[in-house]
Design a binder for these strands. Structure first.
Lengths: 210, 210
DNA sequence: TTGTTAATTTAACACCGTTAAGTAATTAAT
DNA sequence: ATTAATTACTTAACGGTGTTAAATTAACAA
């Protein structure tokens, strides 16, 4: 409606307004099913206004991903308080799966669809920040478990271990999100699948009980 | 150019001609980046002709998926000859990953992108056919390992075990396909990740060595 | 020869992301 | 106070997509 000056803060607020509007639409529908025009309408602007704040749809999606990565890290933060490191690692897996399965369209956008690769330099998030970087959170837990001597003696590479745990949980979650309606497979309960994956990970990575 | 009668065989040949043209385009580019017009041009027809054989693009993609599912099962077939059941299960994992990573765009279409759910009744493939159904192949191997008494004693559900193994390999492969360019993560070697996942699966699912 | 039918194409529609051109409101300068 | 410049935004439009409707062409049948 009325134009003229706009503080940097106001511009930032409008940016996050757009991002949040889009994220809300993604709750019920996939990324491709939500148009720029619809996002704009939701906040009472015309579609072209979005291009004053984001270079293109892909840039908007990247910004939304950043917000969702932060949301994931935030939702995992309290779990880091768990005392026992092995139990903490277990709880991280549960928390990760809970996020994935309660925000399937967001998870799909974050981890399952082709996206221009994330450059940490251009991200609004801080790498290796325990409040913002979910991968760092996982790696920290892995390091703790390692420091406490719980891993098999031949396992030393924290990245490799973290990426394997991630892959295990991601495998279960992404198959659930993308394939659970597929009638070809007689799917077991998702909770059973999650639990067995966690058991397998633990047994596969940790030393024998002493 | 010249119309008139067309045998059922000719219609089927044209169908597979379209499918194969599209599959070839998918080798180098993602599904969304390949248009109906381009597929048609490749076989010298106009785009609308495709609609005489497939209801819409989604139907064509489903047919392509069927072809790719068959290609996967075919590529795994020889592995089923492996004598030792545990080694056979291990080799199946390697073969699956090899398929995924050498046909990333096809794999993405098959297992990572939203697709109208597969109804076995409408598929061109035969469920529980060892030459056509890759999931059945995996489940068979799982059953063999179970029959030979190699699994942990508390593991009985072949579907659950198969789906967990699948999820483990799918997790590594799909993260590789979708996220390996992401600079946020310091990725370990894909071969190391595949191998550790297999080790973890084995140690997690199999009984202790006797 | 004419009419009917099937295979295919051309033309066109609706929708999408995106860009160019316009519009209106505020500020600054004269 | 009038004018000019700048800024925020919108409307109009472009090119490309999946898809449909309307032609077009070729073979056969009467």
């Amino acid at each position: 409606m009325p134009p003229k000056p706009k503080t940097e803060l106001e511009r930032q607020q409008l940016r996050t307004l757009i991002i949040d509007a889009a994220r809300e639409l993604f709750i019920s529908r996939g990324v491709d099913a939500v148009t720029m025009r619809e996002i704009a309408k939701r906040i009472g602007y015309s579609a072209t206004s979005i291009y004053l704040h984001f270079a293109d749809k892909e840039a908007l999606l990247r910004a939304i991903c950043d917000t969702d990565f932060l949301a994931l890290a935030t939702s995992l933060k309290s779990i880091l308080q768990t005392q026992n490191p092995v139990e903490r690692m277990h709880a991280m897996g549960r928390g990760y799966a809970a996020f994935a399965l309660t925000h399937p369209n967001h998870y799909r956008m974050m981890f399952m669809t082709e996206r221009t690769p994330c450059d940490p330099a251009e991200s609004s998030l801080q790498q290796n920040n325990a409040e913002q970087d979910a991968y760092f959170q996982l790696k920290s837990v892995v390091n703790d478990v390692h420091a406490a001597g719980y891993f098999r003696v031949d396992l030393h590479d924290a990245d490799l271990i973290a990426q394997t745990i991630w892959a295990g949980m991601h495998g279960v979650c992404s198959l659930q999100i993308n394939m659970s309606e597929d009638k070809w497979i007689e799917w077991s309960n998702i909770s059973d699948r999650l639990q067995l994956m966690q058991e397998v990970m633990m047994r596969g990575l940790l030393r024998e009980k002493i």
